[in-house]
Nucleic acid binder design. Sequence first.
DNA 1: AAGTGGTCTAGACCACCAT
DNA 2: TGGTGGTCTAGACCACTTA
Lengths: 250, 250
Amino acid sequence: MTDGTISAADIGHGPLYKRVKSLLTQSLADGEWKPNEAIPSESRLAERFDVSIGTVRKAIDELTAERILVRQQGRGTFVAAHTQNRFLYHFYHVVDEDGIKRFPTPELLQFRRTRAEPHVATRLGIEKGARVIHVRNLLRIEGAPVEVNDIYLDAEVFEGLDRDTFSNRPGTIYQLYQERFRLNIIRTMEQLRAVAIGEAEAPLLQLEQNAPVLQVARVAYTYHSQPVEYRCSLVNTTHHVYQSDQEVRG
Amino acid sequence: MTDGTISAADIGHGPLYKRVKSLLTQSLADGEWKPNEAIPSESRLAERFDVSIGTVRKAIDELTAERILVRQQGRGTFVAAHTQNRFLYHFYHVVDEDGIKRFPTPELLQFRRTRAEPHVATRLGIEKGARVIHVRNLLRIEGAPVEVNDIYLDAEVFEGLDRDTFSNRPGTIYQLYQERFRLNIIRTMEQLRAVAIGEAEAPLLQLEQNAPVLQVARVAYTYHSQPVEYRCSLVNTTHHVYQSDQEVRG
DNA sequence: AAGTGGTCTAGACCACCAT
DNA sequence: TGGTGGTCTAGACCACTTA
């Protein structure tokens, strides 16, 4: 290294393309390129990291497979942004009985600041009793209420978030996280069980008390598997189902 | 083409590697290479299809991403076979409250031949009233009954399958499909809802009648998205959850 | 026309496994 | 030691977008 460039070969270990990938991920986490922006072209990145273009391509291949980047032939490679369609496709699994996925309309029921109970703290990776924001939403599909969700956010991370921002937003919640707080959700983990609905929630979903509903506990992660949101939902599966596909590609 | 080789360039359209991929998939579907067998080396396949080794690699890359093939450095590339671990990892989503996945022990409750009801026929892509095999199993985890499942199979496809074969098998059900019927399950689609358990099933899961249980309706597919099995399960989620991960790679 | 990603090739070398 | 997959390179050409 006699010139001023940073070579990917100089740092870390393992395959070169993995090192390039982690340099790219780091730049993304640092906000060097923002959602919907193009990253530099493959040839520029090859120069910057002092590797061949094929090696850059292999790193980008993996990042696109993880849906962190999106390629567009002739235009460039872009940082994946949360759109309604992306949300629907990757993070929303409720479909109606015909198998059709429709975009739900949210209604803000509650916005408050509180302290993290143990199960919330565990999932968010914060201290028990730490300040959190709790939001409750009702989701309707074609007018019918199908889901209540309770969202928990680390108040330190989401400093300044208020009720108005939440209720008057144009797109999805993950778009809000991205645009206001630079937190790009790239992965979720969900745990499902069947429970009897309580008296507080039953009327919201127009169900009898103790009716069976699907409980979905979701943790959403950003880069480096850092938890960002914990969400616990109750879904009325009388006329809707939760759909899960395994290995669809090809 | 003056010699006797078959060139991938001679048939179909689109990228070469996609054509190579579909030639490979066809050979797999035809049973040219059986589960656990090695397919020819990349250089041999390159000769056979008259393409460069890089093009073969790209085709195999996609097939390994879909978990249809498995590479082993220094040994070769193998047709993915169903093993207990693969089943656990890709097709079984029930974990206990600590998040630990344990292998369930099946007990055969019923094995009978019947006619396909409409919802079964639809999912299996066969005629209503066609002959089907219906199997009911009880799954226990560490002794506790957690899941009842009703499996429906096209009797024409599973010609000769009998109760004994089903109950005295060593591995998973998908291993049985693979070894006896050459049907390799490579993809599943599941639909989940919460339902009240009926009086017939409640005692099996040691629950009160009308207790909420998770209903999982799964269709399992082989190559070319051909449906092979329809399975409807009821899961006691009192001490277990259904876990779903999105985008884990990297 | 210039720039981007997409495909395909050919060859080198490495890491790993069997013998 | 020879064969396998794994990585990396360099270059050619194609398809698509933008100006």
